[in-house]
Design a protein around this nucleic acid. Structure first.
Length: 223
DNA sequence: GCCCAGGTGTTTC
DNA sequence: GAAACACATGGG
């Protein structure tokens, strides 16, 4: 009968995956963003949206010197919606950004001092911040060592035989012990997520993550 | 036209 | 609780 892989075995699998991606996926800088608040805004705007569209929205905000929490909170709602329109869900996301802008103005300084778990709880209590956005912010803004179990990561993990998880939190519960055992640094986890997202674009050319993963094993991924 | 994209919140069974 | 649905633009 099959037994569950141990955390140590999963940790080795994740390390191996990271190594393969480092070797075969062109590295880009992650997370793209010029300020900490800009990373927060990008994390919200990119929800179920391509990064190209997010860039248009960020550019529109930057153009008006509006990419800071005070301006996001103060500007007319219609103007905010207009600026972020290209990235979709613009009414919903405008509301999220205003709420998060208030939070950032009031709580950022203290948030820098909070332990990871406590800050995660606080972020999840905000409208518009679910598990993935919270982890994006924990990793790229507050530099906590968390793995991001986004849709691409879960598909790649499944293809690699490290477990099949339909939902973010299910993957997190099951794999966080292995992630901790693998002792990734913050920089490695930041790079890991970036490589996974970049490999998502490549994987689409293969018509699925299973084929993409076998190319990774062959050392021919992306060629 | 149709499907998908670095999800989240609400409603419904 | 977990499915199902709404939210919306832009590219392949």
């Amino acid at each position: 009968m099959l037994t569950e892989p141990s955390d140590q075995a999963l940790a080795r699998g994740l390390r191996r995956l990271y190594q393969l991606l480092c070797e075969q996926v062109p590295s880009e800088s992650w997370w793209p963003g010029e300020s900490r608040f800009e990373i927060v805004v990008g994390a919200v705007l990119t929800q179920n949206t391509t990064w190209v569209n997010v860039q248009r929205a960020l550019a529109a905000l930057r153009q008006g010197d509006l990419l800071n929490p005070q301006s996001i909170v103060d500007m007319p709602r219609g103007d905010l919606e207009n600026a972020i329109r290209p990235c979709g869900y613009y009414r919903t996301k405008a509301e999220y950004l205003r709420s998060i802008g208030h939070w950032f103005l009031e709580r950022d300084a203290e948030a820098c001092l909070l332990p990871c778990d406590r800050l995660r709880q606080e972020l999840l209590a905000l409208r518009g911040i679910g598990p993935e956005t919270a982890d994006d912010i924990l990793l790229y803004v507050y530099h906590h060592p968390v793995f991001i179990y986004d849709a691409y990561a879960r598909r790649l993990i499944a293809a690699a035989g490290l477990g099949d998880y339909a939902h973010y939190e299910a993957a997190r519960r099951a794999l966080d012990p292995a992630v901790n055992a693998a002792q990734f640094t913050v920089a490695e986890l930041a790079q890991f997520h970036g490589l996974i997202v970049d490999s998502g674009k490549i994987a689409r050319r293969y018509g699925g993550w299973e084929q993409a993963y076998s190319c990774l094993l062959d050392g021919t991924f992306g060629q």
